[in-house]
Computed example of a mutant assay.
Amino acid sequence: MNKHQVETLLSSFAGSDVSSPFGPDALVYKVKGKMYALVSQNEDIARVTLKCKPEDGEVLISQFESISPGYYMNKRHWITIKLCGEVDSNILMDLAHHSYQLIVAKLKKSERTALLIGE
């Protein structure tokens, strides 16, 4: 997946909102005000940072050279993936969806319900 495809995927999640609170070098994806992804901009090889379970992050970091602990994030709960082609698109899509789901699971029940009905 390239940067544009990742951004399109992240934007497709229910209630997704994108902004640049850290300036033009990063797009931040949030749901109900909670960040679930960050995509670098203006780099030769773009990176996406996603939330993950600590045990999953450890396994992924050990398996892929292009996956490292979250860049500028809590290294235990976030991973950064260089979009260089090493990580299969299906894996990347699963990781993005899982990051989103981790955040949604922590929302209030009323907020989760609003996402389901499209408010």
Results as ranks from 00 to 15, higher is better:
T49G: 13
N42D: 11
M73H: 10
L60N: 06
M73F: 11
A46T: 04
K82Q: 15
H98Y: 15
P54Q: 04
Q63D: 13
K34W: 00
K75Y: 05
G57L: 04
S66D: 08
D88H: 15
L95C: 08
G70Q: 10
R76D: 06
K75N: 10
V87D: 07
E111R: 01
I67Y: 10
L92A: 04
L95E: 09
L102E: 01
A46L: 02
M35T: 12
G57F: 00
V104L: 03
L102Y: 01
E43D: 11
H97S: 15
G57P: 05
K109L: 08
K106C: 01
K82I: 10
R47D: 04
F64T: 02
S40F: 08
V59N: 11
A96C: 15
E55L: 06
L38N: 00
I61F: 02
I45V: 15
M35E: 03
R112W: 00
E65M: 14
K53Q: 14
P54G: 06
F64Y: 15
E86P: 10
D56A: 10
R47H: 14
M35P: 04
S62C: 05
W78P: 02
H97Y: 14
Y36M: 02
E86D: 14
M93K: 15
P54K: 03
L50C: 02
H97V: 12
K109T: 10
M35H: 07
Y36N: 04
K51P: 00
N90W: 08
Y100A: 02
V104Q: 00
D94C: 09
K75H: 08
W78A: 09
V39E: 01
Y71F: 15
R112E: 05
E58P: 02
S99L: 01
L50T: 01
Y71I: 08
S99H: 06
A96H: 01
A46Q: 06
Y71D: 08
S89R: 12
S99C: 02
H97G: 11
F64P: 05
D44N: 09
L102G: 03
L95A: 10
H97M: 14
V87Q: 08
